[in-house]
């Protein structure tokens, strides 16, 4: 059982605090959803967790091993995968080359093709020419090939057709059911809460809700209040 434990985590940008005193836990086999309005600190939280920006204070631990001082590459090798927003494919490389970059001992391209068979037909195509949905599948598949314990995905649904978003959400649920710990940042709250187990709502960089996804899904008014305050 793998888990990511975040304790009293604060992150600043240009010395201005963006995320403050976050406590959260992401467990193996479950999806934790991070929600919040624009500017709430969701992306900053993920960037701090993966080491893109340094944390000001607090700890990040995978299976009890603290990683908050490690560089992004080292955190990846410790089992933390971060799928950034904006579908950060290697556009000059083919689909298959994109995945081969991420291959580790013990991982196999067939795992990625098993999850997204669509990519198999497009394996020799330059990744920059793939559709938005295929590119999103590719970056998730690429992250999986690093054999992560924890998979963090930022704004997976942005700019995609609803049918593709449903397909991706189902794939993420399947990964969690297979034992992965998933931390999902989403703008579309209903979709994310529908597949998630635990929800965190951020407002102005602080957690204002920490609880069950289904409870929040049944109370849209409550969710609205949490987003806007008051």
């Amino acid at each position: 059982m793998s888990e990511l434990v975040i304790s009293s985590l604060s992150i600043s940008r240009s010395e201005l605090p963006v995320v403050s005193e976050i406590n959260a836990r992401v467990e193996s086999g479950s999806i934790s959803v991070v929600l919040g309005a624009n500017g709430a600190g969701k992306t900053t939280l993920l960037e701090g967790l993966s080491g893109i920006i340094p944390v000001a204070s607090g700890t990040i631990a995978i299976d009890g091993h603290e990683i908050q001082k490690a560089r992004p590459g080292q955190r990846s090798r410790e089992g933390l995968a971060h799928v950034e927003q904006g579908r950060t494919i290697f556009g000059q490389l083919t689909t298959e080359e994109n995945m081969k970059v991420a291959l580790r001992d013990g991982s196999d391209l067939s795992e990625a093709y098993g999850l997204f068979p669509e990519l198999l037909q497009r394996r020799t195509v330059r990744a920059g020419l793939l559709s938005g949905g295929e590119q999103q599948m590719l970056v998730i598949a690429r992250a999986l090939l690093t054999r992560p314990k924890v998979l963090m995905i930022d704004e997976m649904s942005a700019g995609l057709a609803p049918v593709i978003v449903s397909r991706l959400m189902a794939a993420v649920r399947k990964l969690a059911d297979a034992g992965l710990a998933v931390l999902l940042v989403e703008q579309f709250a209903a979709l994310a809460l529908g597949i998630g187990n635990r929800a965190y709502v951020l407002r102005r960089g602080r957690v204002v809700y920490d609880g069950d996804c289904k409870t929040l899904l049944r109370s849209p008014d409550e969710l609205h209040k949490l987003y806007l305050g008051g």
């Binding site: 893109i52 290697f90 991420a102 090939l145």
Partner: peptide, 10 residues
Amino acid sequence: DRPLAAELIG
């Protein structure tokens, strides 16, 4: 192509 994305996958 993308130094940061490359670093994030190890």
